[in-house]
């Protein structure tokens, strides 16, 4: 099987969120970057498992500048065979998806994996955009994927439950928790990753239709009102009369 996994780089989950340049840019000073957890833990690992079971190749792809190479190498260390980086600073989901689709369009991947969302922009858009640009079916928030020859059986999260679907032929999916278990790269993987190909290719022209013009931090919370643990009637009164939520 030919598998493509889209990986993105995001600030670490504990990173301090601050902005610079008149609140128009994320302040990356002192911020640690990681591979987006959904891409690493679920999408990449499930792709590797499928390859291990049925043979084939796993290619990881990233749209970004050379700053992203550490994250890409980590994907290779976990077990991807090769990597592609489209050399551009991504400004929107549309831009990213169009770049990946332009790369993938003539390469007949069997499955294109994305994460369910990036933990910085929380967009959940790239996978669905790639699917449309490649004219392929798309399953979002996949929690289980089993292959039977070229037929896939996929479970996905829906509001208040699960949907199970079957697709015969190529498709795009976005990975959610449950699809696989996180793998930690070992020393051998890290050594091998250094020799695996990381191909840098130029971007194609894409219009930027929707861009961030400003960021804002939410107003600081008022300090907490403590309530006597023996007086839950008071808490209920406050929730009703003051907060007006019950």
């Amino acid at each position: 099987m030919k598998l493509l996994v889209c990986v993105s780089k995001t600030p670490d989950t504990t990173a301090k969120i601050a902005f610079t340049n008149g609140n128009t840019e994320f302040d990356s000073a002192g911020v640690q970057y990681i591979m987006n957890p959904y891409d690493e833990w679920y999408a990449l690992v499930r792709a590797l498992e499928l390859k291990e079971a049925a043979g084939g190749t796993v290619t990881i792809i990233n749209v970004g500048t050379s700053d992203n190479d550490t994250v890409i190498r980590k994907g290779l260390a976990i077990g991807a065979d090769e990597a592609v980086r489209i050399d551009a600073d991504p400004k929107s989901a549309y831009f990213v998806a169009k770049q990946i689709a332009a790369y993938a369009i003539d390469k007949s991947f069997d499955i294109v994996f994305t994460g369910k969302e990036t933990i910085d922009f929380n967009g959940s858009e790239v996978g669905s955009m790639i699917a449309e640009a490649l004219d392929l079916p798309f399953i979002s928030y996949a929690t289980n994927l089993e292959m039977d020859g070229s037929s896939a059986k996929i479970s996905r999260d829906i509001e208040g439950g699960t949907e199970v679907a079957q697709i015969d032929g190529a498709f795009v999916l976005s990975a959610s928790k449950g699809l696989a278990e996180q793998r930690i790269p070992n020393m051998k993987g890290i050594m091998m990753a250094k020799r695996k190909p990381l191909n840098v290719i130029p971007p194609v022209d894409v219009a930027e239709h929707a861009v961030v013009v400003n960021y804002e931090l939410p107003p600081a919370k008022q300090s907490v009102k403590l309530i006597d643990p023996d007086n839950m009637t008071e808490l209920v009164r406050l929730l009703h009369e003051e907060a007006k939520v019950i």
Partner: peptide, 20 residues
């Protein structure tokens, strides 16, 4: 989950800017 599966596709089909 339905809307999220559609938004990106619509953006591409309609050549539209999207915000989720």
């Amino acid at each position: 989950t339905t809307g999220k599966s559609l938004l990106g596709r619509l953006a591409v089909r309609l050549e539209a800017g999207s915000v989720s």
